[in-house]
Structure formats: structure tokens, C-alpha cells
Design a protein around this nucleic acid. Structure first.
Lengths: 192, 192
DNA sequence: GCCCATCTTGACCGCTTGGTCAAGTGCTCG
DNA sequence: CGAGCACTTGACCAAGCGGTCAAGATGGGC
């Protein structure tokens, strides 16, 4: 494997497990059994490394989302599939989840995290607006609805997929059901 | 004001604005215009300081939640008031919000944050179970519903109250409406 | 006036960190 | 073979960190 990719992978794992600040460059290169110079041959700084990890992985997630809903006409189904795809992706890339969450609280990455989040919200808003036009969702602020949906996704992903290592389905079913029906409905609309 | 309280307040602000790791003990005491020894006279370590801030504030939040729903019989209304109270508290104590969120990603505080979260979830679960018994909520996993509700609260608090500095009402209305009705219900149950 | 407990000072310490760099190593190509 | 490029090494560095401590201040009670 290429050195660069090795460094990327190793650093991702260590950042995810122990945090960005708590993982030193020395530890990363030690784990790979190489000298420190190798790190600075491929990356100009530790900060740039995390920025690249963040950029690459959020791009991958978005691509997968887009691909999964490309051919779906019904906006409600697009929302459901979007939720399921995201959570499945987080299941397969658990290590990135902690990274996304903590990057938002690390000064130099807060703006990048914010931008990524804005893109995701904008995508969701589009489908929600379509659904409102088609009369499937009541006319409310679409951005707030989008944020709420993302909030549920993130929370259930964190607790059930990340912390408790469950497979994605159960949490995804619950997320879809909650987002569509909320707490109240006594006979939930069956999940497709 | 007492030194101890000054240190607590000053540190809280700085941790919230710039992050725990990014704020040094030297900066805290400089801002107060005192020597470093003062810090270590009142606190045994920087870590203990944050632990105390976390303990104190989460206790205050919980007390306020409990007080606000004490005399309410209907579990559904307890849930709604609980949501509104929490978000109002976060509005009044915005600086603590960032702290709570980031503490979960800082190694030595993750377990404390986890414990606090568990308590909040357990509280919500109780009311949800009551509502299921009374037939107001369909019989689903109460813990998942609780996590979902908390996810919406956290997300809308972060975006509208913390990032955009809006007052709590609009975000709280949206949170309650979404949690009760989800996306689908076309004629939302009016917010009480 | 003096003692002693409480509080304050800031120079100092040991240690870790991100980052540098002169000195290699090994591979390819002329 | 040897020139030169791509890569690797690890000792080294300045900066910053959390934390310590001997040396004062301050002030109330005797």
C-alpha cells in the first residue's frame, strides 16, 4: 500500500479512537514503524491531514447518498432512502462518525464541519420542499424540518451504531419511523 | 465576588468560546489579572475545574426540568414542557451548550457526559412509557424514541439558539411539533 | 505589635508537542 | 558505474503546556 494511504488510514483510526488533540504525530508514525520525516514528506501539517480526511470522507458519503436516490421520483421515498443510506454508510465507516462530530468542536475545523453540514441540510431541504409541493408534508419551514431529521439521524447513529455497535437497520427503521410519524401517531405508517 | 466563582465563570466562557484544549490556565488567570497560583489554590487541576463546571451546570438544568413538570399529570404535556424548558435553559446558558457537546469528545470527560446523557434519557423514557400506557403513543422502544427527541432538541438548539442566536421559542415550537407529528401529519396537532 | 491563617505572586520546572533538517538509503536510468 | 531523484531517518528545536513553590501580602484576634 502507498505510504500516504497508510498514514491517512492509521491517523483516521487513531483520531477516531482517542481524539485529534490526544493523538500526536509521533504516535502515528510509531504505530506505522516509520520515522517522523515520512509524515512531513506527505503532509505539510497535522492540521492539513485531518482536513484531508474530513474532505475525502464527507465527499464519499455525499456521493453515496446522491447515487442511492438518483432514480427515485417520490420525494418522501427519497428522504427515507437518504436516511437509510447515510446510516448504512456510517455503519460501514464508523471511525469517521466520531471524527465528524468532534471536528465541529475543534477550532480550526469548525468552519469546514459547518460547510459540510450546510450541504447536507440543503440536500434535505430540496426533497422536503418537493414533498410540500406535492402535499405530502404540511407547509412548515423546510430548513427546520431538515435540521430535525439530521438531528435524529446523528443521535441514533451515535448511540446505537457507534456506541453500541449494532447493525444499521434497527436504528434506521426507528429514525425513519420517528421522522415520518413523530411520537403521536398510534398506528405508525408502515416502513416501506 | 469570590475568586472561586470568578474563576469558574471566566473559565466557562473561555472553554465555551475557544475549547478546553485551546484555553490554557495561563490565559484564564491573565484575563482575571491574577497570578497562576490563585488557580491552583482553588482548584487542584484544570481537569477538575471542567469537571466541576459540568457537574454544576447539568445539575442546574435537571433541577429546572424537574421543577417545570412536577405538577403535570398528562405525560404528553410533560414531554412538551420538558422540551421547552430544556431549550429555554440552553438559551439562557448558551455558553454551557458548547461545553456539553464538546465534553463528550474529550477523553477524560466522555464518561461524565455519557452519564449525564443517560440520566436525561432515563427521565424522558419514563414519560414516554407513561404515554404508551395511556395509549397516547404507539408501543415502540421507548428508549429509541427518547434518543430521537433528544437528538432533535440538541440539533435545533445548536443551529438556531447557539449558532444563530435566536430566542428559544421558534426552535422550541418546531421541536415540539416535529417530535409530536413528524414530517407526515398534514394537519399538525396544534402546539399547546 | 505580632502571630498565624488565608490568599497571592510569578519565576521556574519537566515534559510533550508540532515541526525541521542534515544525513543517509536505495532505485532508476543514462 | 555513478548521477540524481524519491523517499526515509531520528536527533534536534523552540514553544507552550500544566503544575509547583518559596517568598511575600493581607488582615483579624490576642
Amino acid at each position: 500500500m502507498q505510504r500516504r494511504a497508510q498514514l491517512l488510514e492509521c491517523a483516521t483510526e487513531m483520531f477516531a479512537e482517542r481524539g485529534y488533540h490526544e493523538t500526536s504525530v509521533a504516535e502515528i508514525v510509531d504505530r506505522l514503524g516509520v520515522g517522523k520525516g515520512v509524515f512531513y514528506w506527505y503532509f505539510s501539517s497535522k492540521e492539513e491531514l485531518l482536513a484531508e480526511i474530513l474532505r475525502g470522507s464527507s465527499l464519499d458519503l455525499r456521493r453515496r447518498q446522491q447515487a442511492s436516490i438518483r432514480d427515485i421520483a417520490d420525494p418522501m421515498v427519497r428522504i427515507e432512502i437518504g436516511i437509510r443510506t447515510s446510516m448504512q454508510w456510517f455503519y460501514e465507516h464508523r471511525k469517521y462518525f466520531a471524527l465528524f462530530q468532534s471536528a465541529a468542536n475543534i477550532e480550526p475545523f469548525a468552519s469546514v464541519a459547518r460547510k459540510n453540514s450546510d450541504v447536507a441540510i440543503a440536500d434535505a431541504v430540496r426533497h422536503i420542499k418537493d414533498a410540500i409541493v406535492e402535499g405530502q408534508i404540511a407547509d412548515q419551514d423546510p430548513e427546520m424540518l431538515a435540521q430535525a431529521v439530521v438531528g435524529v439521524i446523528e443521535k441514533l447513529t451515535r448511540v446505537y451504531i457507534f456506541d453500541r455497535d449494532e447493525p444499521a437497520d434497527r436504528a434506521a427503521d426507528a429514525t425513519v419511523s420517528f421522522c415520518l410519524n413523530g411520537l403521536c401517531r398510534l398506528s405508525p405508517i408502515p416502513v416501506s
